[in-house]
Structures are given as structure tokens and as C-alpha cells.
Computed example of a mutant assay.
Amino acid sequence: MIRRFVVSVLMLLLLGACREAPPDKPEHTADTHQRQPDAAQPALNSAPAVAARAQQRLRTVARSGNIDHDVASLLLEHYRGAQQLAAVEIATGRDPDLRALADTLRREWRQESQTLGRLAGRTHYNASEDYTLLYQDFSRGMQAAGDSATRYYRPPTGNPDADFAAALSAHLRTGLLLVQVGIAYGSDPPLIALVHHFHHDQLRHLRQVQAWTLAHPISTKR
């Protein structure tokens, strides 16, 4: 009788152990390696990715055959890229100086984009310069500006502020190259005046970014 009771108790204990829930699996352990950000493959909305798309759009801006119209169109696209970079910094950045700069870029975009849009529309119907030696030289200058800009880009670090500073620096350098070509070949007085103003602002912002980068060397390293 006692043996039968002991056996029954042991059987109940074994059944209870078998019914216990398995130990909890640590959350996300199975795919942790898949979720880690890869610095070589930046997120779609990161500053490096936004800058790369902006650079690509600059290369695909439609050419009208009129130098002044094309300068205005290219600078308008450049402003749009700067505004998108600023939006990324405001959304993800933490550094107050860079966020203030991003806000300045957004305000400049609202002001200058309207002026550039009007200039592009006004110069669009000017006499075409297509197939002339001057326009061909202008086109080669713009192509060289785009090609030279690629050397300014740096691999992403995963630090939103450092990546914004590096991407914006490259973007501003591209703008300065575009400005040089625009001044050399453009002829519309209001456009040339705006281009000179654009050059002043881009150079000032570039110096701000360079100063920030020098003051934050650790944040630009992985």
C-alpha cells in the first residue's frame, strides 16, 4: 500500500514537471544580428542616404539648352537636397548647434526656392543656346562639378550628428562647385546676383560645419 502511494506521488511529480512551460526565450535573440545597423548600408532616411539621393537628382535635372535656366534649376534642386538633410538632422540629431544650422537651412530654402523658381521660369523661354560651344562648355563644367563632388563624401558612422555634418559638408562643397560654373557661364543679372548671395551663404555654412567637425573629432569615428 505504501509502495503504491509512493509510486503515485512520483508519477504526479513527473507529470507536473513535463507540463511546466519551457524557459522564456530572451526577446529578439534569434534575429539580433539581423537588426544591427550596418554602417556601410545607411538607413533610407539617414543623412548619408538622403545626400546620395540628392546628388543623384542633381545629375538627372533636365537640361533646357539655356544656361541661365539650367543654373537656376540646378541650384533649386541643390536647395531641395539641403532642406531634406536639415529635416533629417531636426528629426534625429541631438547637437544644438547643428540643429540650429538645420533650422537656418530650412528657412533659407523657403526664401530662396521661390526666387529661384521664378528665375527658372522667366529664363526658360529665352533664346536657346543648345548645341553652341558655350552651352557645351557649361555642360562639361556642370558634369565635372558633379564628378568632383563624390570625393567629398565619407562613409556613414551611425552617429546622426556626425553623419549630418559630413553629408552637409559634401553637399555644400557641391553647391560651391555649381556656383563657380554658374558665375562663369550665366548672363542673367538677377540670377548672377542671387548666385553670388548663394555662394556667400554656402561658404558660411561650410565653415560652420567644418568648425563643428574639428571640435567633435570623436563623434566622427566608429
Rank of each mutant, 00 (worst) to 15 (best):
A21M: 07
P22C: 05
P37Y: 00
T29H: 13
E20I: 09
A21N: 10
A49V: 02
F5R: 13
E27N: 05
T29L: 15
P22A: 12
Q34L: 13
A43D: 02
H33T: 10
A47F: 05
L12V: 15
P42V: 07
H28T: 03
A43C: 00
L14D: 00
E20C: 12
A39P: 06
L44N: 08
P42G: 06
Q36Y: 06
A17C: 01
A52I: 00
A43H: 01
E27C: 03
P37A: 06
S8E: 09
A21V: 05
M11E: 10
A39L: 04
F5V: 12
Q36F: 09
G16M: 10
P23F: 02
A52S: 10
R19H: 14
C18I: 07
R19S: 15
V6L: 14
R35K: 05
M11N: 05
S8R: 15
S46P: 01
R4K: 07
A40C: 01
A40W: 01
T32I: 14
A47E: 11
D31W: 07
P26D: 05
P26V: 06
S46N: 04
C18T: 09
A30F: 04
H33P: 04
R4Q: 13
A52V: 00
L13S: 12
A51W: 01
L15E: 02
L44W: 11
A47K: 03
T29D: 14
C18E: 08
A51H: 04
V6C: 07
A40N: 05
P42F: 10
E27M: 08
P26G: 07
R4D: 14
G16W: 09
V6S: 09
D24F: 11
R35H: 03
